[in-house]
């Protein structure tokens, strides 16, 4: 009986801690309270396909969080996999459909809209490129990075598509906070 009570108390305490932590995160960020608690840092993908998306696409690059691109761009990317930025990335028809549906459901202008990440795609002028690394927001966030020295010629990075090289495991969860960045072979990144 006492153990049950104690467990309950611990549960209550954890809930309070969680709410307090969430509120402080929300206040420190630039979005609204709800969008930050539910979709601010990171994102909650909906629908089937997340696992398949991860497995298929992260063989070559980060499986970019779906809210980073708009629905129409995801459609264009997924319907031209035979020439995927110069590489062939064709998938079995069924797999392709599962992934396309997943990306569209969670795109910047669909369910992904509540994620902070979606603003990169929604607020970027269309410059004709389908690359996430060409989004104005992406470029702005990386404008202090010396591309050749820190990325291209860095043996542990190589390309902007290897988000995890500097953002760590957080990248796959859609968390790209500046204070968690560590560029391999360079001193701690501090603005």
């Amino acid at each position: 009986m006492q153990t049950a009570n104690m467990t309950n108390n611990i549960k209550k305490l954890s809930l309070i801690t969680l709410v307090v932590a969430a509120s402080s995160t929300a206040m420190a960020s630039d979005g609204g309270f709800f969008s930050n608690v539910f979709g601010g840092n990171g994102y909650q993908p909906t629908g089937q396909g997340q696992e398949i998306y991860q497995e298929e696409c992260s063989a070559c690059h980060l499986a970019y969080p779906a809210p980073l691109q708009t629905k129409d761009k995801w459609l264009k990317i997924m319907s031209s996999l035979d020439d995927h930025f110069g590489d062939n990335a064709e998938l079995a028809a069924e797999t392709q459909k599962t992934i396309t549906d997943y990306l569209i459901a969670n795109a910047a202008d669909t369910n992904g809209e509540s994620s902070k990440l979606s603003k990169f795609a929604r607020r970027s002028r269309d410059n004709g490129s389908l690359r996430i690394t060409d989004l104005e927001g992406f470029k702005r966030k990386h404008d202090e990075i010396d591309k050749m020295r820190m990325v291209v010629n860095n043996p542990d990075v190589g390309s902007f598509s290897q988000c995890s090289a500097c953002h760590g495991d957080n990248a796959q969860k859609g968390i790209f906070d500046e204070d968690t960045v560590k560029i391999p072979n360079f001193a701690r990144w501090d603005d």
Binding site: A59, H61, F85, D87, G158, S159, S161, Q162
Partner: peptide, 8 residues
């Protein structure tokens, strides 16, 4: 190995 473009 290492992907020639993405360096993965």
């Amino acid at each position: 190995g290492k992907h020639i473009k993405t360096k993965r």
